[in-house]
Design a protein around this nucleic acid. Structure first.
Lengths: 229, 229
DNA sequence: ACCGGCCACCGTGTATGCAACGCGCGGCGA
DNA sequence: TCGCCGCGCGTTGCATACACGGTGGCCGGT
């Protein structure tokens, strides 16, 4: 009778539009649909073997999430945030995750803390093995453990949304040499702070973690000055 | 070549669906549509003198914002967050606004600071006159000045969304005789901290204003006390 | 009288058709 | 040669029509 963490499961059976929206979102987040790509209703309809109607509804659902940009009579394109917007989102995400980490430090249950330890141990193995793709997936899971530990569904919601929106621009982040190892060390620092109940330390560690990520991205994005905020 | 603060104006001319979505959102936020009310497509279509199609698109746009709850084959209702969810959202909103206030303290331009002073002065007059309805509107404007002063469009976006979602449940908050005066005093404290560049103080003042102290936040993490404002 | 299954109504989900708007190209004039 | 105007095409916006699923009530059985 334990309440499910998201107390609402409004998805007894997804409708076509929802399935298409989920698929498109996934394609965008995974980078299969590149920022700026035009989303033609007719083509998508043909591609999914449905009429334009569900495709339109899917796009209209995606627009408020920020994954696609809709201009009233000119169709939709995959969102292309400029450098300043990305910087803003990184700043906010750092704060959101810091908030979650602080909360974790104070309120995580023993069971959740064990889960965190297990995740860290598992990821340590991936680092040793150099398995970047496994590490990438585990990284998402790790951050979701932090969200869950904060026991705040709304925080989880907006942090997840922010992370998704930034995902296309962080895809290659772990490719940078030695980044995976550094990332893991930062994770360890975060978990250590959480485990000893150091809320401020956990928040700071997470801010630093995201901050480094942002800098890494800026370095890879080219040679623009990294003070866009 | 000066970049416009919102470099995108994706609303050359709103489409029917967008107009309906805006109208519905407004009705929900203003409390004219009460939480739990069923949103029948046909009725709404008749009411707006359009077909079901734009109404459906409007509802699909509103669903991701959290203002309405959509169940796949059972229609939409005005969202009814329970006490725990409301408490979560208040906590997050307090942190978002605290974040904004901290940024304001450090980065507001002189022009923006003068605007803040003017707003406070104007609201002081409303308090003296006991004009609750004018104060209510000015209060929203005040908080939006804080958002704007943070110079972070994404933060503004999610803070505004959160505030909108909570609006239906804060409608009567200022009706308490002394609440308006207290609220104004808190605003003054916030502005004072911002004007002297005290980021931590501004953040703390805003947290207190929203009514969620850090301790409340911590307590709520474990035990889910339904102490929604 | 209570319970179970059946049926009909209501509302949503999807498809199709038509009209309007935006855009690009070609022609005309300066 | 360059700029402006008008026209045609493609795409989106909206309306209408049909199909599927869900819900509530009715009826027969126990």
């Amino acid at each position: 009778m334990a309440a499910a963490p998201p107390p609402e499961s409004p998805k007894p059976r997804p409708t076509r539009a929802e399935a298409i929206a989920a698929q498109l979102a996934d394609d965008i987040v995974a980078g299969r649909l590149k920022p700026g790509a035009a989303l033609d209703e007719a083509s998508l309809a043909a591609q999914f073997s449905v009429s334009r109607t569900p495709v339109r509804e899917a796009l209209r659902q995606l627009a408020p999430t920020g994954l696609v940009q809709a201009v009233p009579r000119r169709g939709c394109v995959v969102a292309v945030p400029d450098a300043a917007q990305l910087a803003e989102m990184f700043v906010v995400m750092a704060e959101l995750e810091a908030m979650a980490a602080a909360h974790c430090a104070m309120a995580m249950t023993p069971h959740e803390r064990r889960g965190l330890e297990r995740q860290i141990a598992s990821m340590a193995g991936m680092v040793r093995a150099g398995d970047v793709s496994a590490y990438r997936a585990a990284n998402v899971a790790f951050h979701h453990l932090i969200y869950a530990g904060a026991h705040n569904g709304y925080l989880t919601e907006i942090a997840t949304a922010t992370r998704r929106r930034l995902a296309p621009f962080r895809a290659a982040q772990l490719e940078a040499p030695d980044r995976m190892r550094k990332s893991h060390e930062e994770h360890v620092a975060i978990v250590t702070a959480i485990q000893r109940g150091d809320a401020a330390g956990a928040a700071a560690a997470l801010r630093a973690h995201i901050g480094v990520t942002e800098r890494t991205w800026i370095a890879m994005a080219g040679s623009r000055r990294p003070d866009a905020a």
